[in-house]
Design a protein around this nucleic acid. Sequence first.
DNA 1: GTGAATCCTTGATAATTGTCAATCCGGTAA
DNA 2: TTACCGGATTGACAATTATCAAGGATTCAC
Lengths: 234, 234
Amino acid sequence: MEQRDINKAWTSGSKCEQCAIRGLVLFADLTKSDFDLIHRPINDFWLMVGDTLYNQGDQPDAIFTLRSGLVKLVSYLADGAVRIVRVIKPGDVVGLEALDNKKYFHRAIVLEDASFCRIPVSQIKILNESSPHLAKQLTARWQRVMSDADLWLSQLSSGFAKRRVAYLLLYLSEENEANECYLPSREDMGAMLAITTETASRIVARFKRNGLIKLVSPHRVALDKEKLIDYCEQ
Amino acid sequence: MEQRDINKAWTSGSKCEQCAIRGLVLFADLTKSDFDLIHRPINDFWLMVGDTLYNQGDQPDAIFTLRSGLVKLVSYLADGAVRIVRVIKPGDVVGLEALDNKKYFHRAIVLEDASFCRIPVSQIKILNESSPHLAKQLTARWQRVMSDADLWLSQLSSGFAKRRVAYLLLYLSEENEANECYLPSREDMGAMLAITTETASRIVARFKRNGLIKLVSPHRVALDKEKLIDYCEQ
DNA sequence: GTGAATCCTTGATAATTGTCAATCCGGTAA
DNA sequence: TTACCGGATTGACAATTATCAAGGATTCAC
């Protein structure tokens, strides 16, 4: 299913050297001679809200850089429970488990229309053996995954539900000068914060009434960060 | 403080090639010629229960392989809350953030008397540039950290407290054929599972009464895995 | 535009967990 | 031995959150 999504979205192979966001992404440090090693084109493509990038258990052959949009990583437990274990933001790499020849750990679902570049694992391996530049960026990506996981554990999965919601909104608004962020569906918030849909809804509704957040469009809110931070620390 | 701990525990530099658990550790894939690149000795040393391997914010210059024992990684939040974000088991690598020139993210505290090897970051970098063997193992370590983080989020930080406790015990007993595992202090269990000390205590006491677990020595329990698994799925 | 479907909100109630406090237990030191 | 100490356990009660259920609002397709 996601294969069809991807196929229909292919664009022609693009030139990484000219990529507008190259400074942010995995190939940031590569030199001209490094790029000469890339034979298969790095493709970029779009997916729409609700599309699946890959499924839990799929056999991977590529990792992806998110150029724009937002993606959730969903983990399905044995008992049917669903937990969103991470949110991928622009510039992030997703599917790193492919480098260890592991099946994908999660299902990756698009939350906001997204553009990706697809980087075949074979390319990564070639570059990695011949140039140290990529290894540095890869290390930084692993690092980011790890520190994100810490944050999800320490801020988004403990304490009162209202504080978790506040932290989530602040997390989603990071690197966004406009104090605006994506507002997940209440069900998704629940799956991110380990609370129920209803609890998430009650808290969001209260935040709205108290002026901590204001809806600017469906799934987008303006934040009063000061108040939210107070809320987290009270 | 932890520096003193480490110094007093130094043993003479040992030969990685002869290490009894080399198959399990970071240098598993290295060849004879790879080892010839190692000039500074890889030291191994012991720490006792309660000792600190490093503190949150310390400037790192090494990563560590845990040869035996058990270690907790503690994260201190701005508001003073404490969360244990991971438990390090034998064969695991700890302090990987050092490879990205980051300060240590956590405080690493010994739960069961532990022996480590200390691997200077400079060594890793030398090996990494000249041999692909280490990179493979490093990737596998990152991977492990990531999938562990997933497990902590999906199993140990959501659902009913009693289920989290059951999952924690099963997690701690992994790779232990004897169906026996470390039993953390109730306070530590609380910090691992985002519940209170009292709740942890109540549940452990109930598990004991119902025969799910049986204390074999202080901080060590025998598990009835069948019952525990049932408990997780009911 | 209209209906249908979906998501969000809210209420009432039950269950779980947190809080505060007292007691118990095991080990240690005097 | 006895007193003491820290951790573990338990009780009573309060607070938070889940559950079940019903409306309300919004979005989407036709």
